[in-house]
Amino acid sequence: MQVDIITIDGLSFAYQGSEVLHNITCAIKAGDYVGVVGPNGSGKSTLIRCLLGLNRVEQGNISLFGIPQAAFSAWDRIGFLPQGLQLFNPNFPATVEEIVRLGRLAKKRFPRRFNATDAAATAQALELMGITSIKNKLIGELSGGLRQRALLARALVNEPEILILDEPTTALDPETREGFYATLKDLNASKGTTVLLITHDSSTVGLYASKLLYLDKKMIFYGSFKEFCLSSNMTEVFGPQNQHLICHRH
């Protein structure tokens, strides 16, 4: 039986008095591949930031692996790939290998020192993402697609049980995007990695995800694609043609 590894209960969040999330309640089970969709400003990224503790939750509760978010410390169990780095400096002097190895810090306690196990895990993650040959290249020298692969390798270096991705393919060309999603699907199927994928592209999310979480500040829908396709409420929200398109792609 699948267990809940992320539970969100009555989560509301506001930026400077303006509510971005309202009373979100849902549970994500181990092995789920959840597509989080919704229009711009619907609170998708805010939800992820709350899960990761980047936004301090003031109303509602979040639990990760049964532990309240505020007390959670096993960050090696969660891999995170942001849409883009906060202030990415193309002249940053770190190599791909150095960046991927940084992900291992989540397993460390002070003083955080790397050892042979970390080197082996880094080599494995580079291999998994097919980027061993560019491990000595500088991160700023890579194309958008390769940089995202490097950051995905960083997110995967601890073999996390949950992988959270915030619009990871925005800067990628369609071909690279396909390959990227195929890798995620394979991780979910072969290793049972729980995937939480934020995307603004609701029409193609059905190609990859097994569940859909539709947000528009509040939770409009959360469930399997089968439930989505049969839901008359969703027909009202999306219109029959769009609903059919999403279901057809699944």
């Binding site: 990761l52 503790g53 980047l54 410390s73 960050w75 969660i78 995170f80 942001p82 780095l85 906060q86 202030l87 990415f88 940053f92 770190a94 150095e98 960046i99 940084l102 992900g103 810090l105 989540a106 460390k108 955080r112 020192r113 790397f114 960083r154």
Partner: peptide, 17 residues
């Protein structure tokens, strides 16, 4: 390593604990 991590990206560093 902590300094390296926050220099590369603060949010990624925060999600590494």
């Amino acid at each position: 390593n902590d300094l390296f991590a926050i220099t590369f990206d603060e949010e990624l560093a925060a999600t590494s604990g």
